[in-house]
Design a protein around this nucleic acid. Structure first.
Lengths: 250, 250
DNA sequence: GAGTGGTCTAGACCACGTA
DNA sequence: ACGTGGTCTAGACCACTCG
């Protein structure tokens, strides 16, 4: 026999069933900790554990001093491929982020741009082929916003020798793309890597996400025809708000 | 002033710093709950909470009855684009999974294939354009393994009318990709959507993953030239073991 | 048998927003 | 003022494995 489930898991399971059956729809208020404890004749801690199981599953959000509600599951789509389906309205030359978000009825404005020259962190140095001791890289840090709230962390790394003298080394908000090509570094492939993990405490703070929300770390490396990496873009994307999308011709 | 951090968070932060500074490398044993409690003069529950914060961040794994160790962060790469960098050795016609995994020195064999005819779940019905009440779909369920352990859940859905009479409707493990084309449904685009979320209890069990490990839900829709969806592949991919990769020509 | 984590209890104090 | 969740304590019992 399977060992009986712990009380907290049983209670969590019961509530989970009520959400997936629709009895507790998105936005519905769950029982408070003392209520749930009394209902099931357990201590408040046990009831609390049950609710936290659901929080960690992403089913439930805490509204401070209001209680816990069932989460809405709506997500935005971020198109990461340059290729578009015929008939789509996207103009792929401008920043895809802006097009995507406003195309879905949201406001992509806001956020900050911060350009710095730093000694490259080890992982960046390796990708860009830099010496962490002697080389300098330019990082363009950005927090993209949606409807006025932080939505994505997006850091762009370049070798200083590549972008020196171009607008990419300056704190201007360029809509970019052929800057690198004009500097003699034609970019012909992007290699995207997507890592799924929990956020660091710092990321949780910067993105203002609920604890327990996983993120995608999206690392896009821009390659020249001779396979040199000229650009590394690292984005941190909260899983509860954004879907990544690729269109691939077969 | 910022309100002082709670004791459990402070202790977690201290341990986190010791891991990122390298003082606690991968595999290192962390202090046990009673040890940590005594060290910081707090109750066992508080010490436990601190350790659980790190578990939920994915930094730490529990070895039953041994203690908690710092996780290794190594991940496999799964190539999801058909396009390959010139010079790569992949033969893109066969199952990319097998090529990818064995190319990285792991064993992709094992697992099960289970073919069923079911009434389509609502999300599948919508994508494939089926009527949930009258239509039937064929699902090919698979749990892909790596080195003998479950690694990825991969369910393939088809309209029964499309695959009836082909090997895709039978419980055979075919590696051929042009079955659909021969049946008159040429597939010219794949649309991939990647959702980052926490696993359901069922997925946690089937994938045998640590609680607190996030997953990517990868949904690949195969489109014909007239934008009909003929195939939906849904994969559930544990974040702690696999990196997704796309190569995109610019 | 000692030591690990897993679970639970019954209390307590706190900050803080809503009503 | 009341009720919410956030945190903490000091105890307890359990299943299990390792030496």
């Amino acid at each position: 026999m399977s060992p009986t489930e712990s009380a907290s898991r049983q209670i969590a399971g019961e509530l989970r069933a009520r959400t997936s059956s629709g009895a507790l729809g998105p936005g519905a208020l769950l029982p408070s900790e003392p209520e749930l404890a009394a209902l099931h004749r357990v201590s408040r801690q046990t009831a609390r554990s049950a609710l936290q199981i659901l929080e960690h599953e992403g089913l439930v959000t805490v509204l401070p001093r209001r209680g816990r509600i069932v989460r809405r599951q709506h997500r935005l789509t971020w198109n990461l491929s340059t290729f578009e389906l015929p008939g789509s309205t996207a103009s792929s030359s401008v920043d895809a982020w802006t097009t995507d978000i406003s195309g879905q009825g949201y406001d992509p404005t806001g956020g900050t741009l911060d350009v710095e020259r730093i000694t490259p962190p080890p992982d960046v140095a390796q990708v860009l082929g830099l010496d962490p001791n002697t080389d300098t890289c330019v990082v363009r840090r950005r927090v993209r916003h949606v409807d006025g709230r932080p939505a994505v962390i997006s850091d762009d790394y370049f070798d200083l020798r590549v972008v020196e003298g171009t607008e990419l080394a300056e704190p201007e908000d360029t809509t970019r793309e052929n800057v690198l090509k004009e500097a003699g570094y034609e970019q012909v492939y992007d290699v995207d890597e997507i890592i799924v993990r929990m956020p660091t405490p710092d990321e949780t703070r910067r993105l203002d996400i609920q604890p327990g929300t996983p993120v995608a770390e999206h690392r896009r490396t821009g390659l020249t025809p001779d396979h040199r990496s000229v650009r590394l873009m690292v984005s941190v994307i909260p899983g509860d708000t954004i879907v990544l999308r690729y269109v691939i011709p077969t």
